[in-house]
Design a binder for these strands. Structure first.
Lengths: 142, 142
DNA sequence: AGCAAGACTTGATTTGTTCCAGACAAGCGG
DNA sequence: CCGCTTGTCTGGAACAAATCAAGTCTTGCT
């Protein structure tokens, strides 16, 4: 994803193109599942001084616009990733909190249909797999 | 679930039986998906003065012991429910945050197997359905 | 009944996040 | 290129959720 691609995405969503927004999208494209604090640090590396409010504002604005997806596994702080259309899921390490992408088991949202939906109108099924990552498994074995 | 049942469960898990722990388990049995703050209030209703720290400690201890399950949908605070063996899932209202139980789509944990697990050793698949509850849907329609 | 580990209390502290208000800067349509 | 609108900055302040620390009490074993 180039800076130009990011610009187009922003415009398509009716959002102005600013240095800060481009930086946030670029950072999250290169490093998915990043928490807010790390986003702030990385944004400053590529775009110079940016206030922490600006980053919070941008994350909120882009999430509302549907360009970002906010994920927050139990016990973790908020993390963000660029929203892509593939409806993928996540596997989280119980030991170190590492997150990896996993393709959807079926293919399109909602990829699962509950037996009894209690009258809810369901538009998405989010799956989180819990386990232990290879690194932590190796560390535990020794 | 009677107080005696709760006592047995605690002892089976090697935990001491205290007023606070019995109260927490009872409250969560009667009101699943309750957030920490509400647990504290309800515990105080049934068991008199209990420090908020004690409730946090109890929730942690019982979760570690496997008697409770902690759930935390994106954008929500931590909620707890008594852990039952049926591996059910949850449907969450995007509008008001209401949570309802949903039976597992397949039947046993892990009830879904990802195509590419990236070397992770997976022991559980947690599914969160997102949608709008009947109440909010009705309110939006009017 | 006595004892020690474990559980609880009190109170302060940290962490992540949001809100505020006014001044300034920048994007984009005309 | 001008001006309106939107976004960002400074920098505080406030917030709720959760955790830490030290001392006191209680449970359950002997």
């Amino acid at each position: 994803m180039t800076g130009a691609d990011v610009e187009v995405k922003l415009r398509e969503s009716g959002l102005r193109v600013t240095r800060q927004r481009v930086a946030v999208l670029t950072v999250l494209h290169d490093h998915p599942h990043t928490d807010t604090d790390t986003v702030i640090r990385r944004v400053r590396e590529v775009a110079g001084d940016v206030s922490h409010q600006a980053v919070y504002d941008v994350l909120r604005a882009l999430t509302d616009a549907g360009l970002l997806r906010r994920i927050q596994p139990t016990g973790s702080v908020a993390r963000y990733e660029v929203r892509v259309g593939d409806n993928h899921h996540h596997v989280v390490c119980r030991s170190c909190g590492a997150i990896a992408d996993v393709d959807c088991a079926v293919g399109h949202a909602p990829c699962l249909t509950p037996s009894d939906h209690h009258g809810f109108v369901i538009d998405e099924a989010e799956v989180t797999y819990w386990g232990v990552c290879p690194t932590c498994a190796a560390a535990a074995a020794s």
